[in-house]
């Protein structure tokens, strides 16, 4: 992101795997953290710590100085679930079946790939949109 500062926007869509225990819960936790301005912090914590049960998520919320009562209330009421389901439906509609899947200015890249491949696709996209 730093390398392409001002020229690249990263957008997250949720695609929780249906048969994993905590995928949907973690997606909702990221949105509950986002509601308190800490989406990326929660995103980073969940990916690095990997424990995604409710009590671990509550501990992350505490660590990030979120209002934990509000965080858990929103998590337990599943208030962000419709939004997660809409993203899920979109991924299905696009025939994506794996995470992570990336779309870079319309070009699809499936799976975890070497950073060079991202650079190449981003550079290519930048060249395509550059004024002639």
């Amino acid at each position: 992101m730093h390398e392409y500062q001002g020229r690249l926007r990263l957008v997250i869509k949720h695609y929780p795997y249906r048969y994993r225990d905590y995928s949907a819960l973690a997606a909702q936790a990221s949105e509950a953290a986002r509601a308190q301005g800490k989406f990326w912090e929660m995103h980073d914590l969940m990916l690095s710590r990997k424990q995604l049960d409710r009590s671990s998520l509550a501990a992350y919320a505490r660590e990030l100085n979120l209002d934990v009562t509000r965080f858990l209330r929103e998590l337990d009421s599943q208030m962000y679930l419709p939004q997660i389901k809409a993203d899920f439906a979109l991924a299905r509609q696009l025939d994506f079946f794996q995470t992570p899947t990336f779309v870079i200015n319309g070009r699809v890249l499936v799976g975890e790939r070497p950073i060079e491949m991202f650079r190449q696709l981003i550079d290519q996209a930048l060249a395509e949109v550059a004024p002639q």
């Binding site: 690249l8 926007r9 869509k13 995928s23 992570p100 990336f102 930048l126």
Partner: peptide, 17 residues
Amino acid sequence: LGPADAPVVMVEFIDFQ
């Protein structure tokens, strides 16, 4: 993350687990 008018937009479909 990044400016709304960025020339390149990368969308990531993510699963945290």
